[in-house]
Write a protein that binds this DNA or RNA. Sequence first.
DNA 1: TTTTCTGCAAATCTTTTGCACCACG
DNA 2: CGTGGTGCAAAAGATTTGCAGAAAA
Lengths: 147, 147
Amino acid sequence: MNAGLEALRSQGRRLTPQRQLVYGALLDHPGHATADDLFAGLARRLPGIQRTTVYRTLDLLVEVGLARTVRLGRSTSYEPVREGVESHQHLVCDQCGSTADVGLPALFDRVRSAAEAVGYQVSRIDLVAHGTCAGCAAAGPATGLGR
Amino acid sequence: MNAGLEALRSQGRRLTPQRQLVYGALLDHPGHATADDLFAGLARRLPGIQRTTVYRTLDLLVEVGLARTVRLGRSTSYEPVREGVESHQHLVCDQCGSTADVGLPALFDRVRSAAEAVGYQVSRIDLVAHGTCAGCAAAGPATGLGR
DNA sequence: TTTTCTGCAAATCTTTTGCACCACG
DNA sequence: CGTGGTGCAAAAGATTTGCAGAAAA
């Protein structure tokens, strides 16, 4: 299950229970999670774990290619890298804050072409679309007026 | 020139020199700027200005719809909202950190359709493509190996 | 004159770093 | 057993907040 983590050993890194838990929590988390989200969940299972460790582990996972960062809100979020996916699209509801993923398979190629026209060689794409989710649209379109 | 700022008055907000300068600096800044970028530039013209004020003003500009936030690096960036543009695409070079803009006019519609299929009503799209710029690709493709 | 804004200082939140002990391999 | 990893504490960077005086309208 934590098969991906085996990659650590081949790079001289060690496979510790903390790392397994952090990676597992990341895989379990729907969508994406902040370091603190993961820490909160993990603290229950492994009381002694430290925020620092979660940050350092996420950093490591990104370095090794098992995770990637996504910037949505005030703090950095992480999501596991799954095979065959080089592009991620997130939908964010500006009213309730809920998020969802949407797939646009052809997006990557089109952005790559456009970027090459400007001299850039693109390796990864993050797209964030803001709007209103079905729930909020139904609940109260009028609610969106005030501030 | 600072015509957009007039909108403030109609909302009961005040048009102060600080706000004019912050908005002006934002308009002048190529691409996007962090609160601190703007503060640094502004401090020269208006020595007494405070970081706090820049933060509060940018917040206000976003609230009024004259600016929007973009999350690229560790800190939040801002860019002015220009008419007729409801989607922004940024290219970021992972090697030198340089950024560029690229236009994909059709992107907005395609994302909107995909999002509607999942029940979302999209109003704005931010896309960040990571890769290598022409300069870095030419300079040293080998440089990218180490860490 | 009446609020709203600004400057200043300090608090808060997120993320990073230094160091000593612990544990994977 | 040796080096890399973790916990702990404290630092660093970004952003927010409380309050009193300054200034738009």
